[in-house]
């Protein structure tokens, strides 16, 4: 158990040291989200009708770009090899690492999203629903992104390729996430999409670290 905490603290230190990487995600999220009212109609009805897709799109985009180099530095300085050699289960260590990464790249997005939601004239309970949807969907996305980052580890410029691999896999999350936000704003029942998102989150939390670990093993040897 202790080594998991050690890894977690190490990730925290790294994140503090490379605070620009953490900030990149938030800036991207914020800018893409506020660009839409700036360049198109800024009427209340229009913004309320597009807030769902835009929230999902911006978080997808931000987490994709901030996770491109998730394993790269650790791969180059040999940390991943050390993790692979350690006595603890590699899958567990990857799970810890992914969770720490979520804490520093996606949790800020969820906090900022409340602010953005109020720019889009969303009020009251709907803001909480948006944050909840983002919580569930970023938890899933981070596992998908970690897998893709692991599998494209040996490639020098993985950006376009990662997008190509991630987009089809993430699509259901984006569809159901924006549906949940849309339904909540229209005052409809949101339990269906939220159940789906929760299910996908559970599935990705169980399968994700395992697949990521095997992808890393392939990329290592």
């Amino acid at each position: 158990m202790e080594s998991y905490f050690q890894l977690f603290f190490r990730e925290t230190k790294v994140a503090v040291k490379r605070w620009t990487d953490v900030l990149t995600g938030i800036i991207l999220f914020f800018l893409t989200a506020i660009l839409f009212p700036l360049i198109s109609d800024s009427g209340k009805d229009f913004l309320l009708s597009i807030v769902g897709p835009i929230m999902m799109f911006s978080s997808f985009f931000a987490s994709l770009l901030s996770m491109q180099n998730m394993f790269k530095a650790d791969f180059q300085n040999g940390t991943i090899e050390q993790l692979l050699l350690s006595k603890k289960s590699f899958v567990g260590l990857i799970f810890t690492k992914t969770l720490a990464f979520w804490l520093f790249t996606s949790l800020p997005l969820i906090l900022v999203s409340g602010l953005i939601a109020s720019i889009y004239f969303v009020t009251g309970k709907d803001i909480l629903i948006i944050q909840m949807t983002l919580f569930l969907s970023t938890m899933t996305m981070i596992n998908i992104n970690a897998f893709t980052a692991a599998i494209t580890l040996g490639i020098r410029y993985p950006g376009a390729l990662m997008t190509l691999i991630i987009t089809p896999i993430t699509l259901p999350i984006l569809i159901f996430g924006s549906k949940a936000i849309e339904n909540s704003i229209l005052g409809l029942d949101i339990s269906g999409p939220l159940y789906f998102l929760t299910g996908m989150m559970m599935l990705s939390l169980f399968l994700g670290p395992w697949i990521t670990a095997s992808a890393l093993k392939i990329s290592m040897d």
Binding site: G154, I169, P172, S219, D221
Partner: peptide
């Protein structure tokens, strides 16, 4: 070897995901 195994992982993930994608669409 690496290319084979990495791409195969993606294909397998696609197989798991294809029904989910289809029904969500």
């Amino acid at each position: 070897k690496k290319a084979d195994r990495s791409a195969s992982l993606v294909a397998i993930l696609g197989i798991i995901n294809l029904p989910i994608i289809h029904y969500s669409v």
